[in-house]
């Protein structure tokens, strides 16, 4: 007989239902306006998702996220790969990364706004920074771990240094790079929202804080649910893609970011 945990999709649904139930009961017991019952927040969802202005905000946020994310991949993957294969490049970038890594990227937002204004450029740059670091780090680790003998085998076939980096180091490091990209995706979503909370012009973060300022707590919670679902869908879609792209790889450690 199959146990409940073996039915696909059921455990996460049960978890969601459980969370909503706890929320509903807690809200009724505590009874403050800052914590509306779950059903009131859920009731707001259709309204937000059909409102033109809200949808435009969500789409604008997504556009910045995709732009910052894509730019980060284009820059971070080559840097990480070269760091992994050239000691000089690693020696140059490592201290820089060490300084930037622990700084919350949103904390840079006010400074960046001084340079680039409150528009798309600042927010995209913050997302870019947030995504770059984990991708660089994992590309670096992946490239460093590439077996020397694999590169020698390629060299004997006639591949030069540039061809080896592109056609051996890159695919060999791809499983590790994909782990970095997954972390980067979640960070892109987080920096997207926080950047909009600081530079409030439009976007999901602006939507959230406008509602908060106007004490529309149901809307605040509904927006948080939307952001959470967005993250869940993006992560699940990426995991599908990841398993297809690196199906050839030996199963390695999994990652504790997001869930599927």
């Amino acid at each position: 007989m199959r146990s409940i945990s073996q039915i696909p999709g059921l455990p996460p649904l049960l978890a969601c239902a459980g969370l909503l139930a706890v929320w509903e009961i807690a809200a009724r017991i505590i009874g403050i306006s800052g914590l509306p019952p779950a059903h009131e927040a859920l009731r707001e969802l259709p309204g937000i998702l059909t409102d033109k202005q809200s949808l435009a905000d969500i789409l604008a946020s997504m556009r910045r996220m995709v732009t910052g994310f894509a730019l980060a991949l284009i820059v971070a993957v080559p840097i990480g790969l070269m760091m992994g294969r050239a000691r000089l490049v690693a020696a140059f970038f490592n201290p820089l990364l060490m300084i930037i890594y622990p700084v919350p990227k949103a904390a840079l937002m006010p400074l960046i706004m001084l340079w680039l204004g409150v528009g798309d450029a600042s927010k995209t740059l913050v997302i870019f920074l947030g995504v770059s670091l984990p991708v660089i780090y994992h590309a670096y680790q992946g490239a460093r771990a590439v077996e020397e003998k694999m590169l020698w085998s390629a060299a004997a076939m006639g591949l030069g240094p540039a061809a080896r980096l592109l056609r051996i180091v890159f695919p060999a490091a791809l499983p590790e790079i994909m782990v970095g990209i997954r972390t980067g995706l979640v960070l892109a979503l987080i920096t997207m929202v926080t950047s909009e909370m600081i530079a409030r012009k439009q976007g999901v973060g602006d939507l959230l804080f406008n509602a908060l300022a106007m004490a529309q707590y149901q809307t605040v919670y509904a927006t948080i649910i939307i952001i959470g679902m967005l993250g869940f869908v993006i992560d699940a879609a990426f995991e599908k893609l990841r398993f297809r792209v690196v199906a050839w790889a030996e199963p390695t450690h999994d990652i504790a970011v997001g869930s599927t």
Partner: peptide, 28 residues
């Protein structure tokens, strides 16, 4: 330096894991 006149075979196999058997043999 290395060259196709000298073909190495290593204890660690050093196959290209993202290529199939056929892809590996065809690579060189």
């Amino acid at each position: 330096g290395p060259g196709p006149d000298r073909g190495p075979v290593f204890q660690e196999f050093a196959l290209f894991p993202w290529k199939t058997v056929l892809g590996n043999v065809m690579y060189g």
